[in-house]
């Protein structure tokens, strides 16, 4: 069987439409994960041990179970609570909740990256808490987080095809649809792979550059 270029071109618009949904889901999921991870990492530092336990437990459970099952779970449990969001939003929520457990660790690692001596020096200089955070700690903690968060962004991007299993017609879902109707698998799946490469390789290069830039700072 040969790759039929004409057929490939004819299904390309449909796939690209799916790709737009893929990108939207990735960005939405990442926005949720950035906030969710922040909340989790604050809860991890809470005074009350039950709060810490819940935050740590959430992270452990989410990181030890497959995203696929988590999505199925959300897909079935949300309606039980009377939430009837479109599948796309369920998917975004799933991605966000899943990756919050990873970004939380990034925030923690970023803060631990700032040596204790920096806090002590800020105290010795009588800086206010606010200045200590905004002028001393965050400028050192955030740059090394950028490439780590970027890597999770790409990982999330590559996880979006799983949304097809809860009926979201993103890139992979669109390819499945085409394949289901035409019984041609070669072109749609190859195109999906190529579109993924076209988007992820430049992102990886960008992150590598950020990584080199920011690690020079230290």
């Amino acid at each position: 069987m040969k790759f039929n270029l004409e057929f490939a071109l004819s299904i390309l618009p449909e796939l690209l439409q799916g790709a737009i949904l893929t990108l939207a889901a990735t960005l939405g999921g990442m926005a949720l994960a950035l906030v969710g991870g922040l909340i989790l990492s604050v809860l991890q530092q809470a005074r009350l041990w039950p709060v810490r336990f819940l935050a740590n437990g959430y992270i452990a459970v989410v990181r030890s179970t497959p995203l696929l099952i988590q999505l199925f779970f959300l897909f079935y449990i949300l309606p039980e609570f009377g939430v009837t969001a479109p599948a796309f939003w369920t998917g975004v929520l799933g991605l966000g909740l899943h990756y919050s457990a990873y970004t939380a660790e990034v925030y923690r690692a970023g803060l631990e990256n700032v040596p204790r001596g920096q806090w002590e020096a800020a105290t010795a200089l009588h800086l206010s808490i606010r200045d200590t955070w905004t002028k001393v700690v965050m400028p050192q903690a955030i740059p090394p987080m950028v490439p780590m968060l970027g890597n999770y962004l790409i990982a999330m991007f590559k996880d979006t095809p799983i949304l097809a299993t809860i009926t979201v017609i993103e890139l992979f879902g669109a390819a499945n649809q085409v394949a289901g109707i035409t019984y041609r698998y070669f072109e749609p799946y190859t195109l999906v792979g190529l579109i993924f490469l076209a988007l992820s390789i430049p992102s990886v290069l960008l992150i590598n550059r950020a990584d080199r830039r920011f690690s020079l700072v230290r």
């Binding site: 590559k158 992979f172 698998y185």
Partner: peptide
Amino acid sequence: VEIFRGTSALVQIFYFFYVLPLI
């Protein structure tokens, strides 16, 4: 490395299962 890292695991599984038989 870049081909397998740059695409999705699920897509690769489908590719192996549905496309490789065609070739």
